[in-house]
Nucleic acid binder design. Structure first.
Lengths: 328, 328
DNA sequence: TAGGGTTGAGGAAACGTTTCCTGACGAGTG
DNA sequence: CACTCGTCAGGAAACGTTTCCTCAACCCTA
């Protein structure tokens, strides 16, 4: 920059003004731009954000469950797309549902003075998150409720989605409905369970399996559920991997055309299985987009109470959820 | 930091030493750490990398095709996992195969003085990439050959993978094999086509469809290919979305149990379709891991000529590729 | 024509670190 | 005992910007 100033024969301050688009004598502007081009000058982001009054880094931190998970990566992409329009770059990391890892990530993101944070919180009430909030860093929690009061949140209507699907099964004549859900430490798993209970009422405990975390575990759980004497006539699985595992079990038991099955969360190729899998779909991209927009409005100085956006889910009838109970 | 120094009653330099783990009088170390904890001090990354002799930012830039694409995100995760062990954070962005977007991304990453770059290059010979290389930024190209000479590359054996699959079909008795590939501007598409030509020799032009970019386009291409009078008895699709689109077409034509079909790149649920889809699988996570390791060795001062790592592909026989030609 | 007001560019301080250099102190040696 | 050498902590400069402040030049008005 010093070199550019020297070559253009102007002061340092003028170079800064030109680079930042502050209006300046057009003649000088030309000289500075020429000199900059000639020297291949690019301004240094570190120095810029160090000195600027607003300390902006034009970077936002994104803490996901796992960058490679389709839900997370769709969300990531949506955040990127919103950010790009503002020249924001995204620093993303995977917490793997581990509170320690989440804390660590939040720590380094804070150290880098990101302008804002979008977090899929693990749920363990988190000191780092609270500290960042106190520091005034705008934070949006997405997909799950915030462990820290006062943060903006964007979530899907997990409870209502499941309840709706269960009611649809009921209307079809199903009275005996099984349910498989993920770890109860996850807010989404608890919400989906609550939706199930709300719509299905009391059922046999053996038909409700919680804390099932992998496709393989779901396969086993469903195999056991349908091996026992009175078996449900319909099944709701509360997460996409669990849905896949459950379908595998149903196929192995030869029940995939007999037992109604609805999964939470859409997944690629769900329509190409036989029968095609009906799902309660949420829109991860929309979750990400709304979270990013919310963050931007805070970055623009938006004040006011914490927003709590709930996005609707959508039932996609593909066939597996429309199987009637035996004898109807 | 000034406050910490004052509270601990030491000089600024000593605080810096303690924070960076330079050995210092244990008594002072204790005082400094106490003061830092008490004041909630965290060092500022911007100022650090501005002043440090090596200018390290502990950040690497990752330019992918699309952060949300499963191949890309698996690669992303692998890079993250390698980086985490070194305290590196990943700035990821999506080029969407657009050279302009790629340039823009590389530009802002360069501005941020990332320590190194991992890029899935669009292929258009790129001035930014070359400039970054000249500046001494370590760069690794992954999945595709480098448009700039002298860069490390990590790629899969696309050509050999396809050739192997075609030979296997030949051994089964297939003589008429169709081929569907992505845009020829993509290095991988060209390589896979080359592998096909190498193993299949000359075929009817109508049976080789290139520049097919979406699942829907693949569906149409395959529909046309098998509607015409002499149709192939086997099909190779050179990308996972194309594979899905092709399978959809085969199902619609009622040929999915008659025509042998092999896809390039594995995809989730490939084993749950009927018949299960045989694929030539590459390992995106391993590609990412190797690229990241290569980058780290350069960051550690590793010198020497550009490495060109080629990872093998693996044929996964699931059924669809093992269908014999009619009459055998 | 002189004086006050306005505009706009240059100089220097500041952001929060690291690193160089100086100087004090203690130990070892002649 | 005096001198030199080595060790280690503190002060200040420097990294590349932005921003504050000063100051010169110009225009307008009395």
């Amino acid at each position: 920059m010093k070199d550019v100033a020297a070559l253009a024969g102007v002061g340092l301050a003028t170079v800064s003004r030109v680079i930042n688009g502050v209006p300046v004598d057009p003649h000088l502007t030309g000289r500075v731009l020429d000199a900059a081009r000639q020297l291949g000058y690019r301004k240094d982001t570190a120095a810029t954000s160090l000195r600027r009054a607003d300390r902006r880094t034009n970077t936002i931190g994104l803490v996901l469950q796992d960058v490679a998970n389709p839900f997370s990566s769709a969300l990531h992409r949506a955040v990127e797309d919103v950010g790009v329009q503002r020249g924001l770059l995204v620093l993303a990391g995977s917490s793997d549902e581990e509170p320690d890892r989440e804390r660590e990530l939040l720590g380094v993101l804070r150290t880098r003075r990101v302008d804002g944070l979008i977090v899929v919180p693990t749920g363990a009430s988190d000191g780092e998150l609270a500290a960042a909030h106190r520091d005034g860093t705008p934070i949006v929690c997405v997909d799950r409720a915030s462990p820290v009061p006062g943060l903006d949140t964007v979530t899907a209507d997990n409870r209502g989605g499941v309840a709706g699907a269960v009611r649809a099964l009921h209307d079809l004549g199903h009275r005996d409905i099984g349910f498989v859900a993920d770890h109860s430490s996850l807010w989404t798993a608890r919400e989906r369970h609550a939706g199930f209970v709300q719509a299905a009422g009391a059922t046999r405990p053996a038909w409700v399996r919680r804390d099932v975390h992998t496709a393989e575990a779901a396969r086993q759980a469903v195999t056991e559920m349908f091996a026992a004497a009175p078996a449900p006539t319909a099944l709701v699985t509360a997460q996409n991997w669990l849905t896949v595992g459950a379908r595998r079990a149903l196929v192995e038991l030869g029940l995939h055309r007999t037992v109604a099955h609805v999964g939470f969360d859409d997944f690629p190729l769900a329509d190409m299985l036989d029968p095609p899998v009906s799902v309660i779909a949420q829109d991860p991209a929309e979750l990400g987009r709304r979270a990013a927009l919310l963050l931007l409005s805070r970055l623009d100085g938006g004040t006011g109470p914490a927003a709590a956006v709930t996005l609707p889910t959508r039932y996609i009838a593909r066939g597996s959820g429309e199987i009637p109970p035996p004898g109807r």
